[in-house]
Design a protein around this nucleic acid. Structure first.
Lengths: 347, 347
DNA sequence: TAGAATCAATTTATCGATTTACCAATAATT
DNA sequence: AATTATTGGTAAATCGATAAATTGATTCTA
């Protein structure tokens, strides 16, 4: 015996009043609509008693609002994105919004599909780490005046709010730091990607090398969900460049993957090569020696992103000015990149 | 100028036919409804041309179906859950289902709230790692014949499909293994939790110690999103039990957190203590010495879970038999728990 | 005292789809 | 000849809410 869920009509019938009245009362418009105190109380009491909850689907269909925010990350299994998602979810929840998230896999088609789904589920706002190829879809959302905030990467050609970090500066600083320590053959192992943040990381590295008249050693590996397909190209690269004295990894996945390869090849850190990786990670902190990392301010990224979106949702006025935030990353100096660490490791 | 989205009525009007006909054609019921080939083609062509997509919200309101699966994990930032979520999402996507996930934080109230949200957004099925306290809400879903699959933990009193691993057996085996290697003062550091899986892990440990007439050393720490609040009690425990010769950690978070504490206290692994942790993790593989871990078959858990749910969704017949799956975990032997590792470390 | 305003709700339209019930014309069956 | 099926669709009801328009009784205003 399935207990059919109550609808507003059932409530109205049971109380012998109109459903509109019920609706007004439940939406706090009783005073405005001059509905008697007595009736208001009677309705609220009854609603509470039977545990009636309005069907939010029908509500959304009518109002166009859902109190849901769509969050699209590259891969929810990546700790960087998972942590951001987590933080955003918390803040949103406390502000009465629910989050639904999904992974784009950096696949433009899948992303388009997901945007469409979000859209016709009437999500109130969009937080997206967009893959290359969805520029038009983002533009479309903006044209229709929907609140969008991008993060981690952005589209230079599109006037849309975003929160990113200063990637170029970070790898520049990291590379400079290695150069200062006397390293000369510094490699950059990164993901094959045209996204702004990945390009900027590469550019920062190149800029530092150029300024110091050093040769770049760049290896771009194709992304693969399965780590073993990324290990091989890295291993090949390292075998073919035995004289490297430092490596910068472009992401945490590449970094952890690279560490495994290095361990397998019996390359010693920092005696044989110094290491710096983008993104901090438990592994980098616990590894021996600990790995110097470019830590992105995860909480700050998340906080800025959700704040911008919430303010857009608040202001009924469709404010045209898009907020663009670039945060500074933090270079966490650890043993893997320090010359004196070499000494202590030898001793 | 906002380009208003097309509705089925617009399509019907433009073609001078009834919206019903359009609906039938788009839902593949043209043949059944004896609609002429010619008209079918005309409609399909036009729909494609203008890029019309039915509003899924309205569709859901009418049909009660959404092709969306709700996935509730404890914490999406935990790699164990993130990976399961990822895998489930992939499989679901390939089967025409979208996933919306969220974190329960093991908070019964929040979970109840989220279940309600899923419910009135008309998700077609539920995959839940349930916190203690939502037994009745799960029972309610089942009573209303909604497809539910639990994973990671379950409720012994409720007849509901689930996929879990043999937690008791795993910690039993791990503990036995340590005992065989000659360890006598074996501690179990775990999360304070009444969930079945955490209880089973504890029970496996206790059982092994009992059978070997050894004393248990148990430390339960309260969960906290912020790792530092978990480090302190662990540190205190270790300081007060300097004579321990082995430690088993109950989860990967406790494990990585514990490793940091151990590093800070300058306790050597495995010379001072042997270590085994539940759940595998990059850190455990890369740590030096590498950490023995009880690896849960993440892909298998995810595959079983989503398969059960999909089969429930497929069979229009509400099959009453709930599927209950218990998978075996894999003890990955590494340096941190091996006596011979001690030797090689000393040498 | 006619007309306007207020009161306290109600009736009806609407969101955008699906589903049920029905129709009129012709063909087939009893 | 009367009934039933088939054909190719359409009109109206429905899902569960909100929003706009309306109502009938009373009270205020000019």
């Amino acid at each position: 015996m399935i207990k059919k869920k109550l609808s507003i009509v059932d409530i109205a019938n049971k109380l012998n009043i109109s459903k509109t009245t019920v609706s007004f009362i439940l939406n706090g418009r009783a005073r405005e609509k001059r509905i008697s105190e007595e009736l208001v109380e009677r309705v609220l009491k009854f609603v509470k008693e039977v545990g009636y909850k309005p069907n939010s689907l029908a509500k959304s269909l009518r109002t166009g609002k859902s109190h849901i925010i769509g969050l699209m990350v590259e891969n929810i299994a990546d700790p960087f994105f998972a942590n951001i998602a987590r933080y955003i979810e918390d803040r949103a929840y406390k502000n009465g919004y629910r989050i639904i998230y999904c992974s784009t896999d950096n696949d433009a088609d899948k992303t388009r599909d997901l945007i469409a789904m979000f859209r016709d589920r009437h999500v109130d706002g969009y937080i997206i780490a967009p893959p290359v190829g969805v520029e038009e879809d983002i533009a479309e959302l903006l044209k229709d005046d929907l609140p969008v905030v991008l993060f981690d990467r952005y589209f230079p050609g599109i006037d849309c709010s975003y929160v990113v970090t200063d990637n170029l500066d970070s790898t520049y600083t990291a590379t400079e730091y290695l150069v200062e320590q006397g390293y000369k053959k510094i490699a950059f192992i990164t993901l094959e990607s045209h996204q702004t943040q990945m390009q900027a990381r590469l550019d920062g590295y190149k800029k530092a090398l150029e300024q110091n008249n050093l040769n770049p050693y760049i290896k771009e590996v194709a992304f693969n969900q399965d780590v073993k397909y990324m290990s091989e190209p890295i291993a090949d690269f390292l075998k073919n460049n035995k004289d490297l004295d430092a490596i910068i990894f472009g992401t945490n996945r590449i970094g952890t993957c690279g560490l495994k390869v290095i361990q397998n090849l019996d390359i010693r850190i920092p005696d044989d090569v110094a290491i710096i990786s983008f993104d901090d990670h438990d592994v980098f902190e616990l590894y021996s020696p600990s790995i110097t990392a470019i830590a992105q301010p995860v909480e700050e990224i998340a906080a800025n992103t959700i704040n911008i979106l919430l303010s857009k949702l608040d202001s009924s006025t469709s404010n045209i000015d898009q907020k663009k935030v670039t945060l500074q990353n933090d270079l966490i100096y650890r043993g893997s990149s320090q010359v004196n660490a070499k000494l202590s490791a030898v001793k």
